[in-house]
Amino acid sequence: MATMKKLAVCALLLGSVFTIGTALAAGNKTIVTVVKLAGETWFTRMDQGVKDYGVKTAGVTTSEIGPGKADAAQQERLIEDLIARGVDAIAVVPFDPPMLEGVLKRAMDRGIKVMTHEANNLKNTQVDMEAFDNAAFGAHFNDQLADCMGKSGTWTSFVGSLGSLTHVQWADASAANAAKKYPDMKLVSAKNESFNDANTAYNKAKELLKKFPDLKGIEGGSAVDVIGIGRAVEEAGLVGKICVYGIGMPNDTSRYLKSGAVNGISLWDPKDAGFVMNKIAHMLVDGTEFKEGMDLGVPGYNNMHVKQGPGKGIIVTGQAWIDVNKDNLDKYNF
């Protein structure tokens, strides 16, 4: 049938177009980075670091891949296929860490090296890399927010999902920080879920602004939350009257940073993170030892703190956060 032939040609063409990276030089190690959600700006930036590492390092082929929807099931299936493919190392940013325990164990049983990022409660990983101490980061958000709010008033927080470990850790640390240092700040409706979707965050923020008319501060959780929150703040005409801080991407949030709807974002450069993730994966493949204080050659990751993780693996932590606001926005073009 003519249609069948066309389909075959399409499949072959598509395959060849994207197989550039798969042309393995004999002996090249494959490291595949699995992210939470393909197409999200954060992970598109991370891909630059992933590619960078592959280009700058000999004997290693790197690539990034991710599911089209934020669903633990899709990520799990991706990794199953990577195991079957027989890659040398997997670097994962888990959407829901506990749901990947099984498949990552299977990967390691098959001799594949496994490292993770933003998953310090995961047992079945050899190394989990954190850009910074999550509790400190959460507290840092809160301090910025409190400063803006004049240390008093009602505030709330967002997360990507209740399973997104790091977001929850930041939100919890933030709350703890406020409880300890700012008794006049009242937290309402903590950890609203946005599912990494700006529209969901926008709608939720609108609801919250209506429900708590005296709301003075909002903290975002996933990188797109502040976009939705900023839009809601602008529409409600509350620019300058309500403090918004969160994690975000400079280019995506620039409009709201400039208008003042979002006061500031803190983040770590996913490009650096991607680079470091692949470096660590490579170190695992080569069997290099991880030492306290080691320098991974990337700013913010020059002095890694090593500690035991919940399983047999270790957690390595850097100090790589950056604060971006409308004054230094032009320095960060991603």
């Binding site: 499949a11 598509l14 395959g15 994207f18 197989t19 990276g21 798969t22 595949v32 393909a38 197409g39 690539s63 891949i65 991710g66 599911p67 089209g68 929807k69 899709q74 299936r77 991706l78 296929d81 990577l82 079957a84 493919r85």
Partner: peptide
Amino acid sequence: LSSMFNFLDISNFFRDFA
């Protein structure tokens, strides 16, 4: 089809497209 695309590092969007 899905597994084949994962083998080829093809983004999941192309899988949905396929």
